[in-house]
Design a protein around this nucleic acid. Structure first.
Lengths: 153, 153
DNA sequence: GGTGAAATCTACCTAGG
DNA sequence: CCTAGGTAGATTTCACC
């Protein structure tokens, strides 16, 4: 699928407001509402737009502690990685996990109601797991930039 | 604002499908559509729901390189942090930035079309900045867990 | 919890390059 | 023939009962 500059501006807008109506999109893009809606539909069908999501305010939900946790597995092997990957899915506090080049480390993004529950996660879940060799956690103090739209230029 | 278990299930659903209609929410929650819509409206007004966003597929947009970059500032001071914070806003590849406890480090989440542009960002933008002392970048290989709903239990 | 007016979406249709 | 703009029926929302 080819994305022209109008598509990119449409995507930029929909990332900021996923509830924008076809009419609103048309005004922003200087198109008719029907054309804007048609473009949006195309982008949904082709999977460029993966889904729509409500973004919540963690503080208002009592999730006052955010952290990034780096986890180092003691032995590198497919079966170890797989068992750890299963663990990730069972822990709702871990909202995202990435593996990186170089080390077979995981980077985890974690939301907890308080420091105690973060420490429980680290000690009773992560360090208690025999596959895990080391963890290093850093608590988020401030988020000067949050979930900006993807760079589409 | 008090959130009862029904609100939490509503939020969980809206994080997965931000376009759920009041009727759909009502079916999930075993409520009437009008009650489900009323709850949602309340959660929007009180800011528990911050906004709605379209989630895009980075690969389909040509953003094949994701990375986390840790940036260490050479001197810790309010004015240095502020100048770096301004830099963050000017770079669309940097979609999120966090400051952590302990060090005055920044963790940056970055999306680039290729390795060359990531390297340009690191060397010509970050390291070229006099405030920056060291950077350490890790390229994302895999994302076994991606943007799961916030833990609302 | 239910109802109805207003707004919105979407499929279909028409016009122009 | 393909792309842009317009129209109508169905659906959804939201203020009110």
């Amino acid at each position: 699928m080819i994305l022209d500059p109008v598509d990119l501006r449409l995507l930029e807008h929909l990332q900021k407001n996923g509830q924008a109506t076809a009419q609103e999109l048309g005004e922003v893009l200087h198109l008719s509402a029907s054309q804007a809606g048609r473009r949006r539909q195309k982008l949904e069908e082709t999977g460029v737009i993966h889904h729509y999501a409500a973004r919540l305010d963690p503080a208002k939900l009592g999730l006052s502690v955010q952290a990034f946790v780096q986890v180092q597995l003691d032995r590198h092997g497919a079966e170890h990685g797989a068992s750890f990957a299963r663990l990730l899915k069972t822990r709702p506090e871990i909202t995202s996990a990435w593996t990186m080049t170089g080390e077979a480390d995981y980077l985890l993004r974690v939301y907890c109601p308080d420091l105690a529950s973060l420490n429980r996660l680290i000690h009773e879940v992560l360090l208690a797991n025999p596959v895990v060799s080391r963890v290093h956690s850093q608590i988020v103090m401030d988020q000067p930039k949050a979930d900006a739209p993807l760079p589409l230029g």
